[in-house]
Computed example of a mutant assay.
Amino acid sequence: MTTTSYKNNNFEDILKGRRSLRNYDPTVKISKEEMTEILADSVTAPSSVNMQPWRFVVVESEESKATLKPLIRFNTLQNDSSSAMILIFGDMNSFDYSEAIYGTAVEKGLMPAEIKEQQLAALTPYYDGMSKTQKQEVALIDGSLAAMQLMLVARAYGYDTNPIGGFEKDKLAEAFDLDPERYIPVMIVSIGKAVDAGYESVRLPISEITTWK
């Protein structure tokens, strides 16, 4: 999707200037059109065999924020002040979209038809044989990749974010009319116009976390 909404194209600033910000200007609302652009850029993230298991619920209305509030423990400031709380779920049935995804790739000339058939012939029995735990692992990994990309994309649009893991994971899907057996909560990301610059945080040195062989 081509967009003209970028406010910041400085990659170093987007990457190194990111902070987990909890307090936003409650008067700033991100339009549905701009949020759609942000999400469209976010889902260019990679996923296992391109099955794109991420699913989003954009919680922006007062009514929906009231539904979310008792489920997010000590993260109510983000809920109260953000433009939106983006609930990220992993779809356990993401492979149901395999024909549509690969078929569209063929139609656009991005994949030869014979490669599509080879891929689906190999992947269909593999996915059919995956356990629930294996599907959850894939959904959590891929959903986290989309979440990280969302946080960086938001900065390009002039907004800030906070990744949230402290919420009632066993209640979130059902509270927003999703099948809890199919949709696995990955993360919540608050997004809005921050009212302060936040604080820098320390990272462990590479020498402490990397082994060279």
Score class of each variant (00 low, 15 high):
T4P: 07
S5V: 01
Y6I: 12
N8M: 08
N9D: 14
N10I: 11
F11H: 03
L15K: 12
K16F: 15
K16V: 10
K16L: 15
N23Q: 10
Y24N: 05
D25W: 05
V28T: 12
V28M: 11
I30V: 05
K32G: 01
E33N: 10
E33T: 14
M35A: 04
E37K: 03
I38F: 06
L39R: 11
V49A: 09
V49K: 12
M51L: 14
M51Y: 02
P53G: 03
P53R: 01
P53V: 03
R55C: 08
V57T: 04
E62P: 03
S64M: 14
L71G: 06
I72M: 04
L77Y: 00
S82Q: 02
S82N: 03
A84Q: 08
M85G: 01
M85L: 12
I101F: 04
G103V: 04
M111W: 02
A113L: 00
I115D: 12
K116W: 04
L120S: 05
L120K: 05
T124Q: 15
S131P: 10
T133F: 01
T133Y: 00
Q134W: 09
V138T: 12
L140M: 13
L140F: 06
L140K: 14
A146P: 08
A147H: 01
Q149S: 14
Q149R: 15
Q149M: 15
L150F: 15
L150R: 03
M151N: 10
V153N: 00
A154V: 12
R155D: 03
Y157D: 07
D160A: 10
D160G: 10
I164A: 09
G165L: 10
G165A: 11
K169I: 11
L172K: 07
A175S: 14
F176K: 12
D177Q: 10
D177H: 07
L178T: 04
L178E: 08
D179M: 10
D179N: 15
V186A: 07
I188N: 02
S190Q: 11
G192P: 01
A197T: 12
S201H: 13
L204D: 14
S207T: 13
I209S: 06
T210W: 01
K213M: 06
